[in-house]
Design a protein around this nucleic acid. Structure first.
Lengths: 171, 171
DNA sequence: ACCTGAACACCGTTCAAGT
DNA sequence: ACCTGAACACCGTTCAAGT
């Protein structure tokens, strides 16, 4: 694989993440996957934290607000799309939640949610729930897939209930 | 310092955590702080994850439910005490949140909150907010103390507002 | 501009051996 | 029971040097 664009590095890093998980998504492994020396990555990216932030941005890149519907409906669908995007890649929730904690308010999804709810604190409250619940879901699924735990089939419903609790308190 | 009890290891680890932060709280550093070889720690603890879980338990050890008051008041005071306990040690929120994510439902605080609210899903929703908000607060304070950011004086109020939103949706 | 090679200062964990 | 010493297989990052 040829690497000469930052996008290729991010793509390769996401492939390593999805295949091995965050714990093993090291700079050295990403470099190896790209058939390049570890030091080569630092020509494209300042450090690992920056790379993780770029990965987070890509994970949520296609999450968009719907134009139609009530406030509750728009918030629900946005937050469901965010959850789906994070669940689509291994350890995606942890990567996005951490990056989002570092630069609070800088993400597009957060801005969209503030816009829909017209309440900054409310949007942050809902978002913190979404991140926490999705991280827990993803950890639970990994543990279940390894057979360490019996799978819980009600996680989707549990997510929706939590979202409803917050929205009911908010609207 | 003499190390012959598991408690001493946990105490030493918490001292290192508070002094240097989670990033530098390595097994080797904890061992060095205890004047012991790194391998000695493994006589007391199975691995680093286990040690972190014990540290988390100690951080929240003194958080207790009040017997008196309305449901809302008891939930509020429990959750405030939890937040204060986590903020009292550097990176405490991250340590507790991570440990708590690994063994969901195993902590005493979570059991207490389920008891007060008489709603398992509601307790989990509130707890996810508390962890997320407190982690963000702690990161913000570290950044502000280094001068990387202007301090936000309204974080306590912001926390209370978020708690109220969830409780209003819940009760 | 993009990458190599080598080095620096670290990790977590294991395991035989000592007391 | 508690610990040492040495080793194994890794990390992130820097930097001169090559093309």
């Amino acid at each position: 694989m040829v690497v000469n664009r930052l996008d290729d590095v991010v793509t390769g890093a996401l492939e390593v993440l999805d295949a091995y998980g965050l714990e093993f998504c090291s700079m050295r492994r990403v470099a190896g996957h790209l058939d390049v020396q570890p030091s080569a990555l630092y020509h494209h990216v300042a450090d690992k934290q920056t790379l993780l932030a770029l990965m987070a941005d890509r994970i949520v890149a296609d999450v968009e607000v719907s134009a139609a519907g009530s406030v509750r409906e728009r918030a629900r669908s946005l937050v469901r799309a965010l959850r789906a995007a994070m669940l689509a890649v291994r350890d995606g929730a942890e990567v996005v939640a951490t990056a989002s904690a570092f630069r609070l308010g800088a993400s597009q999804v957060e801005a969209d949610l503030v816009d829909v709810l017209a309440d900054k604190q409310g949007a942050r409250t809902l978002l913190l729930f979404v991140f926490g619940h999705t991280q827990a879901t993803q950890m639970h699924r990994m543990a279940a897939s390894v057979g360490a735990i019996e799978p819980d089939p009600d996680l989707d419903a549990s997510f929706d209930r939590g979202v409803d609790i917050v929205l009911r308190g908010l609207l």
